[in-house]
Design a protein around this nucleic acid. Structure first.
Lengths: 197, 197
DNA sequence: ATAGCGCCATACGCAAGCGTATGGACATAC
DNA sequence: GTATGTCCATACGCTTGCGTATGGCGCTAT
């Protein structure tokens, strides 16, 4: 056991990697660079990880298993679909985890996914999962299944657009258009619901 | 003058760089890699360009000046704003230039813009220019200026989302949601126009 | 035909980054 | 108090990619 509490853990490296990813993309996630940022040497890294791919896989898993699930959970206990979706929209744009802006990391992840098969697979899974979730909420809000599916994809693509744009124009890609789209779709769902019942 | 017609020009290098960018991101735009793909050596490159930054600047300028303007021009001679915007939407998703899928290049450009100040600046300019153009068309279609601006940004963000998603999931990020959003906004504009007289 | 220029090949030095090998400090077990 | 295991430092070889230096080939002009 350690007494000083200064020893690094695998999770510390993953968190540092996430911060580097959010700021500079996958290409900024370098072993020696992270070591310097953690004030240790490469020797430490290669004790915790087999190689760089091992770290990247852990980073991807961390994002899939923790960051993503956490968002949905934090909006799950609200009463109406509209409230849940509006909160989810807000969290998607503002959430921070361990001092890292999640939106920045999301944008960098998509860029990574374009070049790496494993990252691409992870993004596809997460995207599908989130779109399904939004579509089911929209169906609860009153949209027909086909409309809900289409609207969910449109909303999610807009979110991805914000993730991409924010990385090079933080102020221009504000969240007003995103909120507007969510509101428009929810209003349409409400009307559809009113007509149906 | 050359007689054989085999000598490479600066533009050839830029086009090869664009193809590499579209396929593998900026990190795939390497001097020796491009040289191999063009069946020449680095000596050729450093005759045409000062350094790699010179090539990237030329690549950015090529995109800004030619690829971007070309889209708007090709939809300019249609009679109604609705037709122009629908054509523009179609071209944004399907256009090819010199055998390179423009949508792929656009996605890679945003990822590049997140890490490079010059690319970021170029993207900001092009984005603003395009958003202004769409907003003015929407205003012609009947939307109030503030609504047109908001709708234009929403539409454009969705397009950026498609650009990002297509790079790792070509089939899932179809254009149906994008067309749906454009249609919804145009219908709203038509109604607004009808109310206004 | 020869001098000059456009276009490219070859060969080098240099830096960054990965992975490995080896050793050392420090705590715990016994 | 010594042995063992945890966690990290240092040093090395290797590859990739950049930029430069230098030379060579073919065309053109005169």
């Amino acid at each position: 056991m350690m007494a000083t509490g200064q020893a690094l853990t695998r999770r510390d490296w993953v968190k540092a990697a996430l911060a580097a990813l959010a700021e500079g993309g996958v290409e900024a996630v370098k072993v020696e660079r992270l070591a310097r940022s953690l004030s240790v040497s490469k020797g430490s890294f290669y004790w915790h990880f087999k190689d760089r791919g091992d770290l990247l896989a852990a980073l991807l898993a961390f994002w899939q298993d923790e960051l993503t699930a956490q968002l949905i959970e934090r909006s799950a206990d609200l009463p109406t679909p509209r409230q849940r979706l509006e909160t989810l929209a807000q969290l998607s744009l503002e959430a921070e985890s361990e001092g890292v802006n999640v939106a920045e990391a999301e944008g960098a992840l998509r860029a990574w996914a374009a070049q790496d098969a494993a990252a691409g697979h992870g993004c596809r899974l997460v995207d599908q999962q989130r779109i399904d979730h939004v579509a089911s909420e929209l169906a609860l809000a009153g949209l027909a299944p086909a409309e809900a599916e289409l609207a969910a994809r449109a909303i999610y693509l807009t979110l991805l657009g914000i993730y991409a744009a924010r990385r090079y124009t933080p102020e221009l890609a504000g969240d007003a258009p995103f909120r507007a789209i969510v509101a428009i779709v929810l209003d349409a769902a409400a009307q559809s619901s009113a007509r149906a019942g």
